[in-house]
């Protein structure tokens, strides 16, 4: 039996726990099945997919993390750009990147196709790691070391935009990642990320 016709403004006399009509049952079943697909996709991508935000996570003292970053930068420094060291770690190395108001330190030079363990943390505020133009985004939180296995797929000159508000100079916080190809060419052709040196102009 159907419930007496009524609107959502009417109190419902008697028992309202009554069987649904078939159309509703079918829709609920379809919606439920779709929800299961949505759910299954996430573990599935961990298993088969190449992009996951899992990584290794540990607490770390911000000062100590920055000291480790500076040590890393000193060890593999190959040059500098605007006073920030350019650091070229060997393939497979542990790589350190510190966000601080309002700078990413250091500049990384990686090799396309090679895997690195990228450690990210912050010296002060929350920062947002946003790799341009790939649009890869991670939250960088002070006191937490986020270590992700990263394999750049193609050479190019990339930027790191800070996309978490970190203070009044937030919009000036841009870092740089250089990815070289197997022949070690410093900057491969990458139309959407061409370095335009302002000072040279």
């Amino acid at each position: 039996m159907l419930t007496k016709v009524h609107t959502g403004l009417d109190p419902v006399p008697g028992v309202w726990w009554k069987p649904a009509h078939k159309a509703e049952k079918v829709w609920v079943a379809i919606a439920f099945a779709w929800c299961m697909v949505l759910f299954a996709m996430m573990p599935l991508w961990h298993w088969k997919g190449g992009q996951n935000p899992s990584g290794v996570r540990r607490r770390v003292d911000p000062q100590k993390f920055f000291a480790r970053t500076m040590e890393f930068a000193k060890q593999y420094k190959i040059g500098d750009d605007r006073g920030i060291p350019i650091v070229a770690p060997p393939v497979g190395a542990e790589v350190y990147l510190t966000g601080m108001t309002f700078q990413w330190y250091p500049i990384l030079q990686l090799q396309a196709g090679a895997k690195y363990k990228l450690h990210m943390s912050s010296l002060d505020m929350n920062h947002g790691f946003s790799l341009f133009p790939m649009n890869i985004n991670f939250q960088v939180v002070p006191g937490y070391d986020y270590a992700l296995d990263v394999t750049p797929t193609a050479a190019g000159d990339f930027r790191i935009i800070c996309n978490e508000f970190c203070g009044i100079g937030h919009h000036t916080m841009v870092g740089r990642v250089i990815v070289v190809d197997a022949s070690g060419k410093p900057v491969a052709d990458n139309a959407s990320a061409v370095v335009r040196d302002r000072e040279a102009k």
Binding site: S130, N163, H171
Partner: peptide
Amino acid sequence: SFGVPRRHWDISFSQAPFDVP
């Protein structure tokens, strides 16, 4: 979808050390 950040005053990055085209 192009990577434009939220909560950001200047995506022309006129005061940033590196350009973001």
